[in-house]
């Protein structure tokens, strides 16, 4: 397969730290119903590195991802994205960032059902008002192995194929950071392997920064670093992990009394 998206990385040089949380806390509700989803979390997502975020249900994984991506406002602390502080940024600024600097991939694919694969991939560029050369869109889809599915609608594709379209859509803008929320959660193991290899290649060959939330130790083992969250706090960290190590740490966390 060819390179993922056009010319080689300038990203790692431009933003050595693609996204960063500094002492971030996020509180839901108030009074007795108050929940600390995040409690003083500091974490950086460097370029050319894949970080997996793990933890038991309700540990604040998703909230962490949403806050880092500027989708949720933080209650305390600072958030940086592509070298810019976005802690209290207005909607227009966040919209611009989403167009240019951030890519998203979800468990449930989230493609527009009425658009073809090709149209789905071109959508972010069109929204940014960029003229989209067809060749570019095709190249990105070919890079994820879907060169022959350009005109298909999401419902005509398998789950793995849909997820690859979603990745192509996320990559077409060449974002500083790719946020992935359980990207393999809805896939069979073969499709999951394909998708994970695709992500791995983007990190190694193009210096892409990836922040991924997952439940799956096998998926986390493909990352460079795994961080563990519990009750909204960072409690552990593994570099170059194996699936067995990850599973063991996770089991310990889940067994611990809360």
């Amino acid at each position: 397969m060819t390179q993922l998206s056009g010319p080689p990385p300038a990203r790692s040089a431009a933003f050595p730290i693609a996204a960063e949380l500094r002492d971030v806390s996020r509180v839901h509700g108030s009074g007795s119903a108050m929940v600390r989803a995040l409690d003083g979390v500091s974490l950086a997502f460097p370029a050319g590195s894949w970080t997996a975020v793990m933890g038991p249900s309700g540990s604040g994984k998703s909230t962490l991802l949403h806050c880092a991506a500027g989708l949720e406002r933080v209650t305390g602390g600072q958030v940086f994205l592509a070298g810019q502080e976005i802690t209290g940024a207005p909607d227009a600024v966040l919209t611009r960032l989403r167009r240019k600097k951030i890519g998203f991939v979800f468990q449930s694919f989230n493609l527009m059902g009425s658009l073809t694969a090709e149209q789905n991939v071109a959508l972010p560029l069109k929204l940014a008002g960029v003229r989209v050369p067809r060749g570019d869109v095709r190249a990105v889809l070919e890079a994820v192995g879907l060169g022959d599915r350009l005109r298909h609608r999401p419902r005509e594709l398998s789950g793995g194929q849909q997820q690859r379209v979603a990745i192509a859509r996320a990559m077409v803008t060449r974002p500083a950071v790719l946020f992935a929320d359980e990207p393999t959660g809805a896939l069979d193991s073969a499709s999951a392997r394909t998708v994970l290899s695709l992500l791995r290649r983007m990190v190694d060959e193009e210096g892409q920064a990836i922040a991924m939330v997952t439940h799956d130790p096998a998926a986390a083992a493909r990352a460079d670093t795994v961080v563990f969250l519990s009750d909204g706090r960072l409690v552990d960290r593994l570099d170059r992990p194996t699936a067995a190590q990850v599973a063991e740490r996770l089991a310990r966390l889940e067994a611990a009394p809360c």
Binding site: L71, T95, N110
Partner: peptide, 16 residues
């Protein structure tokens, strides 16, 4: 709602 939110997520502005 989901589709519209998705458009916002991939960079759609309110005006769009």
């Amino acid at each position: 709602r989901r589709d519209l939110a998705l458009l916002r997520l991939v960079g759609g502005g309110r005006g769009q």
